[in-house]
Design a protein around this nucleic acid. Structure first.
Lengths: 209, 209
DNA sequence: TTCTGGTTTAACTGTTTGGTTAAATCAAAA
DNA sequence: TTTTGATTTAACCAAACAGTTAAACCAGAA
């Protein structure tokens, strides 16, 4: 009956087409701003089939959001490889965040906005957040400060700044693109690679002991 | 007939109540995610009166968005007082951005998202952007570099980083609040004042010649 | 008091939206 | 060939939604 127990052979199953379309539409318009009809169109199918795979809008959204949150938190694993020195770990972490953002530029805003609208999205997933990784990063940094590996600083503030420098440029790309254009510069020069470079420069200047 | 030509005496006119409610709802849910009924409720009136003041949803949204864009661009005026030295100008600029963000934390995301959904919102307002201020900031910075007042750097990248450091913490506050809580720190310590301080530190470290 | 204009109530229209259903296709496996 | 399950088409429903209208209400000004 249900096609969910199908093997992923063609890597382009209808379920995947739907999920990709849903990701795209939900991330752009949010839960309340999205229409099932729009998702079906984006997936290249009809809404009857959409409801055949995901019974309701809420169920589809829940699947998309869970996946997004999981992937978002997964980034932080790169930081947690305790066998590496702190600078290497930070470096890998930023690399990971950027490759994630290049794939889903609007993901952080999507998560933040939906949670602020519907706080139970967060509360209902305490299990995922139990072993919350953002927490450990702060603790690791504070241990490194004790060890004298890095300069003494406000670790939480550092984390906030770091995320800001990474996420916001992707978010604000459409605006910056316009501003740079009006300034006779082209956005392509300010591609992720260049921005990442400046983030790492920020890290170095901050950690510098 | 229309009450629009009324003097602002009580400072709490129905029109203002509507506009404030519309700001709140539109900024939270976006154009497509907002319901007129919700705006009317938030304003404490009924939808008949809502349509009496603003004929349509699009017209109301347009008024809100125009005001938002105008206020957003207005911040940049603080930078343009050419009688002051560059560091002072940057300082005032950041102060201005922060007092704006404290009042409307979600404004940058609101503008960015709505423009990326509906690009003609930007195109239709080229008149406002003709004397675009973001542009001039870059040009001013480059002149200062020529003069040797500040270190040689990528000015556009600097502006992107600066905006990221200012805007994102307000945007992501609900998430950071949770992360800090789980980390036995309280968000209040990371209030705008402290974040602003770290932004200015970033500016100093970057400009340092 | 009357008049005026903001405000409410409530009913109404037409459209959109989420969701369902049944019959008809269609391709591939049995 | 028959069967099975994915997919489409199209009609349908109930609720939500944007927007309109008319009558009633009510406060302050004339």
């Amino acid at each position: 009956m249900k096609p969910s127990c199908k093997m992923a052979k063609s890597k382009d199953t209808t379920e995947e087409k739907i999920l990709n379309a849903a990701k795209e539409v939900f991330m752009k318009y949010g839960l309340y701003g999205s229409r099932m009809h729009d998702i079906a169109d984006t997936a290249g199918i009809n809404k009857a089939l959409l409801h055949y795979y995901f019974r309701s809008k809420e169920k589809l959204f829940d699947t998309v959001f869970s996946g997004a949150l999981h992937k978002y938190l997964q980034q932080m694993d790169a930081f947690l490889d305790s066998s590496l020195p702190i600078r290497q770990r930070l470096n890998n972490y930023v690399d990971n965040v950027f490759s994630f953002l290049e794939e889903y530029p609007q993901m952080p805003v999507f998560i933040i906005k939906e949670v602020s609208i519907n706080p139970e999205l967060f509360r209902d997933r305490v299990d995922v957040l139990k072993k919350d990784k953002g927490i450990s990063i702060i603790q690791v940094l504070e241990k490194e400060i004790e060890l004298g590996t890095i300069r003494k600083m406000d670790t939480a503030l550092f984390l906030i700044n770091l995320h800001s420098l990474c996420s916001y440029p992707f978010l604000a790309a459409p605006i910056f693109k316009h501003v740079l254009k009006a300034n006779h510069k082209n956005w392509e020069e300010y591609s992720p690679a260049k921005i990442k470079q400046s983030v790492k420069q920020f890290i170095e200047r901050t950690l510098l002991s």
